[in-house]
Design a protein around this nucleic acid. Structure first.
Lengths: 148, 148
DNA sequence: ACATATAGTAGGTATCACAAACCATCGTCC
DNA sequence: GGACGATGGTTTGTGATACCTACTATATGT
């Protein structure tokens, strides 16, 4: 049957497409992809450096620099943990929170537009499938709510 | 209904998952993600710098460096175009071709494994959906065959 | 022949990501 | 209560990525 890719090919290209849209929206807000991911991870609650490192699968030393560059733009701040004097709590500033919300909305809109180009039936399936994969494969909450 | 994400969230996380697998396989072969993408793009036929630039959506000057680093490892070579003396043709060396084939197989395997964790019915749907999106959105052939 | 477009490179800057070495604090175990 | 290993983060150094601007050389259209 013509026009049908194997599953791996379809997955890689779909991933490429989603990533391109993500990067595009990042660019319109002057953010890099890692910076936007960081802010999305902080969207719902402040986190420590180690926690961020685990969620974004980055080395701790990488997170130090990433946080520092976003902090320089006043989108987030570091504060000392009350309970652990080694630890730091990273949280969005009001400006950062606002930008993240806008960004999140825009990504959601773009991807929803994508999905509307297909039959409702298929959309429901996609939703179920992706949800299943994401849950069984233990994908960190780099976007959307933490709870499942 | 618990455990079900909205479509945008599912898409972003699925994309993250696929990308993590891709990056993982890259790492086992000592390749970076952009390097592997470059080699996959050259898998089936040699291409010019401009063509590569368009398919990977990179600035031409970025491609210069990327190609140079992969060439340094003897995975590809540049040769002059016969028809256009400005142009260059980038093609995989035998070693590069071999590595790319192995890499490609491995990614395919990992992603096929992913897919087998779900019902056959869902797998077919995913295939149809992703194929549809990829075709209507004109995603470049960064993986798999060029033809549709 | 001349203007313009195209193919590719060079140089400069910022970001990203890792590894190894390091400091400070926390918890535990004796 | 003090030594000791584990944990939270930073520093430093290196290499890769990616962009923009400027540039060379060749092709193409008029």
């Amino acid at each position: 049957m013509s026009g049908v890719f194997t599953t791996p090919v379809a997955l890689v290209r779909l991933s490429y497409l989603v990533n391109a849209i993500y990067a595009d929206v990042c660019a319109t807000h002057g953010l890099s992809v890692p910076q936007a991911q960081l802010m999305c991870v902080l969207k719902d609650s402040p986190r420590g450096m180690g926690e961020i490192s685990a969620m974004l699968r980055l080395d701790k030393s990488s997170v130090t620099g990433l946080v520092e560059r976003v902090e320089r733009r006043d989108y987030l701040r570091r504060s000392m943990s009350a309970t652990d004097r080694r630890a730091i709590t990273v949280s969005l500033t009001p400006a950062g929170k606002a930008l993240t919300d806008t960004f999140y909305e825009e990504i959601s809109q773009r991807l929803t537009d994508l999905a509307t180009s297909m039959p409702t039936d298929d959309r429901d399936h996609l939703n179920r499938i992706a949800t299943h994969l994401v849950l069984t494969e233990d994908v960190p909450a780099v976007f959307g709510p933490v709870a499942s």
